[in-house]
Design a protein around this nucleic acid. Sequence first.
DNA 1: CAGATATATTGACCGTGGTCAGTTTAATTT
DNA 2: AAATTAAACTGACCACGGTCAATATATCTG
Lengths: 198, 198
Amino acid sequence: MKTRAPQKRRLQTRARLLSEAEKIVTTQGYSALRVEDVVAQAGVAKGTLFSHFKDKDGLLAVLIGARVMEDLEKMETLPPPTSVDDLIQKLEPCLSFVAQDRVIFDVLLRYSGSTGSEVNEVVTESFVRQITLFARWLGQMQQVQKIRDDAPAEVLAEGIQAFLNHVLALWFCAEHANDDSPAKALAPLLQVWLKPQA
Amino acid sequence: MKTRAPQKRRLQTRARLLSEAEKIVTTQGYSALRVEDVVAQAGVAKGTLFSHFKDKDGLLAVLIGARVMEDLEKMETLPPPTSVDDLIQKLEPCLSFVAQDRVIFDVLLRYSGSTGSEVNEVVTESFVRQITLFARWLGQMQQVQKIRDDAPAEVLAEGIQAFLNHVLALWFCAEHANDDSPAKALAPLLQVWLKPQA
DNA sequence: CAGATATATTGACCGTGGTCAGTTTAATTT
DNA sequence: AAATTAAACTGACCACGGTCAATATATCTG
């Protein structure tokens, strides 16, 4: 089983595909991305794209994963939240990025949990990183008695993930009559999750 | 704007489409359902199907919604859970039905939250009914001090929805290496959600 | 009953994602 | 440098969901 390193041409092709794809999503949005447009602009055949990415979602996952990573980097420089409201405020950029387009939500939901089954999966990496960050924040909040400490920070972090997805799912279901942002719906749930009064 | 009642022929056609579709999903699974097969077996043209259902997911939603309704009817006859573990056990049928096929999860997630925007949407109805049932159960558990009572039963019920979707999402991400059932993953989360020790 | 009008169905056609046997290009070997 | 082998790319082709102008069938109205 010989497996050589990818040759230069291949890396260039991949880079071109990604950059053209990015152009499209930034100008027309994620859901407007068509495989045929990407390959046309990149000047390659359709089959080439699918030799670089498992499917269209695989390409999107790389773009979205990279984007999420940027958000995370910013978040990691932030001081830990001082309250649940502050936490929600710090979560807001992530939330509104995903809320902008259904396909973002779908792709993240599809790839996020996978425990590194596919190598090189940016989304998986970002997922782990997000959980880690949440757990760190929550751990620090526990130490200063801002939130409950009867459960491991990791479990609380997982719950935040669940609630984020929940409010996003509701957001996309409501479609039209969504008066306010997903962040609004998050507040009561996180209060109950992180600060039980019993 | 005249709007007559649907004529008999139309109802028969719809019934035939649904029954043929059901045959397919029970023998080959939900993800094996092809529109062309359904119309071929029902003996109608493809366009007919799309005049009865918005899209393929719309057809699936009716089938899945009906199926979920059956589960709910059984659950509604059950006595309220006496503990969190008992609750999880009573949730298990729902969970393992959805866990059997990704498209079930996708369809439910897509339609579940919609607040009756599309009339006649079985899934929406089942969603409301499920939340109501959960809230009733939780309310009763609160009264006998089995779970926290510092939050309205409706909020706790919504949280259960969120956690159900969460463990299901993880289940489908893991795909292969899914050691145990989604219900296993649910337990620690629901314990922390419903019985804070602080 | 003969139009007139609303409802139901048709199927050729399209868009788009994805495949794969075959060809070109690059790296290795002799 | 020629022959060999592996990697990269190609584009005709397919599968499948979904559309819509045209047609057929039912219902209503004078």
